[in-house]
């Protein structure tokens, strides 16, 4: 999809959230000095094109008690990894699941699944469930826990471009 300058302003205005007012798209329209119907039309087009994945509430899982998470990594047979990856992605405790290239010899793993739980023990038991699902297709695996957040800013589009 071709994104024009107005789309870029709309993205910049809404990427950190919608205003919590009765008519939020009207409010965004006032910020951008365009019609509310145009805001809705443009957001719908962005959604249809997949630029917007969803419009929803994103909960802070830490505040809700899910304070443990681990990046589990698996060396899965190339011929089976797409089918098995889809199974892991469908699990409700896996937030991100990706096929990535190995970096041999430093890194033999090609399937990454971020596991969330209330405790480290819960994360480990969920890792065991994944091991069962993967069975003999996984040669080896590891799990990496974050010991410190060094930076977290998320995506910020430059507001002055486009």
């Amino acid at each position: 999809m071709k994104i024009d300058a107005t789309d870029r302003r709309l993205i910049a205005a809404t990427q950190s959230g919608l205003p919590l007012t009765a008519a939020p798209y009207d409010e965004v329209a006032r910020w951008l000095k365009i019609e509310a119907a145009e805001v809705i039309r443009r957001l719908q087009a962005l959604k249809d094109a997949g630029v917007i994945r969803r419009i929803a509430l994103a909960p802070n899982h830490y505040a809700l008690g899910m304070i443990a998470n681990g990046m589990s990594v698996w060396d899965v047979n190339d011929s089976e990894v797409s089918v098995l990856g889809a199974k892991l992605g469908a699990l409700d405790f896996v937030s991100h699941c990706y096929l990535r290239p190995r970096a041999l010899p430093d890194w033999p793993y090609n399937l990454f699944a971020m596991i969330h739980g209330d405790t480290r023990e819960q994360v480990e038991s969920k890792r065991g469930l994944i091991a069962e699902i993967l069975g003999d297709a996984a040669q080896s695996n590891d799990i990496l826990y974050s010991t410190r957040i060094l930076k977290k800013t998320g995506l910020r589009l430059a507001k002055n471009k486009g």
């Binding site: 999809m1 994104i3 993205i11 809404t14 990427q15 950190s16 959230g17 919608l18 919590l20 007012t21 009765a22 957001l43 962005l46 959604k47 094109a49 997949g50 630029v51 917007i52 994945r53 969803r54 419009i55 929803a56 509430l57 994103a58 909960p59 802070n60 505040a63 809700l64 995506l155």
Partner: peptide, 27 residues
Amino acid sequence: LIKRLVNLRELGVITRFGPLYDVEAMG
């Protein structure tokens, strides 16, 4: 509903309320 959402946001229960953009779909 709006009052409760404002409160949830102030409590830090909401990370984001609105569109989730896919940077790759934007090029």
